[in-house]
Computed example of a mutant assay.
Amino acid sequence: MGEIKVLTKEPDIQKDAMMSVGRAIAVLRLIGAAPEPGMRLRDISVALDLHKTSASRMLTTLGALGVIERDRNRCFRVSDDFRTSFGTPLTTTRLRQAARPALSMLSETLEDVAFLSVPNALDSLCVARYIGTYPIQALSLNVGGRRPLGVGAGSLALLAWAPDKERDHLIEMQRPRLSNYRVGVDEITAAVQVAQAQGFTYLPGFVIQGMTGMGMPVRDPSGEVVAALSVAAITERLSGVRRDMAISALKEAASDMEGRLLGGAGRDTGATEEANQSGDIA
């Protein structure tokens, strides 16, 4: 008898595998580029011209692998663990939620306003603000407000602990952007050096006369500064004994937030929870 050859469909199997990989990459690109809080199954299906069943199967697989995650509002986004494995920044939502206990503690302990800021190109971006109970609040910055890096306590903390090879360039890039502020590049450079020596920022009358800001950097599990916690008040409330109290509170708050980022706390809990946080106001 002649030799019997068994025909296989290896080329078809390889083709199917490549198509699956291609779809998975397309899904990741789409979700990764979407604004927070992410995308729903229906929107993903339409955008990629996939049947909902196929899209759902793909999302389920990526979720089981820890690549994406879904929040309470059924929005999918790239998981923070997956982002961190590639060295990409944590999402603003993750940072804001991890900061909530710290911001609440700061505003309750000091009775003054507390802020969470994140770096955004040449600016610091305020993403959360918790107002204290003292009758006079230093509300110089709203949620969504931007300042050039180095202008303000939180903004200076982001700049002072930026990577050494980037800091000088970032400071120089601010030179033409400071005409509307009370400080210039020389003042920011000097403030950076003082902050690094102290371990925190302390800026009496730096941005607004009669107001003082204090800030502390927050690091992710890799040690990179990803945010800053800060407080602001009329100057007499952040001097003397209250200055020392604010330093201790900021250190505790930063440690708490870093612990939550390290331990995986501060995951997405949905827009409903966020809307109920009266401290996050614009």
Rank of each mutant, 00 (worst) to 15 (best):
R260F: 06
L139I: 15
R40V: 07
D12R: 11
S54Y: 03
R175Q: 13
G145R: 14
G38S: 03
A26P: 00
A191V: 10
R29E: 06
R147I: 12
S79M: 08
E10R: 15
M39N: 01
A232C: 14
G199K: 04
S155R: 06
T272F: 09
I234Q: 11
C75I: 01
R94C: 00
G145D: 14
L48P: 02
A160W: 13
I68N: 00
A24G: 07
A162F: 08
F200Q: 06
M245A: 09
T189N: 04
D12Q: 12
I25Q: 02
R237V: 02
A114F: 05
R70L: 01
L229F: 05
R147T: 12
D81S: 15
V127L: 08
Q198G: 00
I68R: 02
M18E: 13
P221T: 12
Q196N: 10
E3L: 15
K165C: 03
E10D: 12
Y181M: 01
A128L: 09
A128M: 13
I4C: 03
D168N: 09
L95K: 06
G215P: 10
Q174R: 15
T53S: 11
P163F: 12
L50Q: 03
T133H: 09
L122K: 09
C126Y: 09
F86V: 09
L103P: 07
F206E: 12
A228D: 07
K165W: 12
A253I: 06
Y134Q: 11
R167F: 05
I4K: 03
G38N: 05
T92C: 02
G263K: 03
R42F: 08
S107F: 05
D123H: 12
A153M: 09
R96V: 05
Y134V: 10
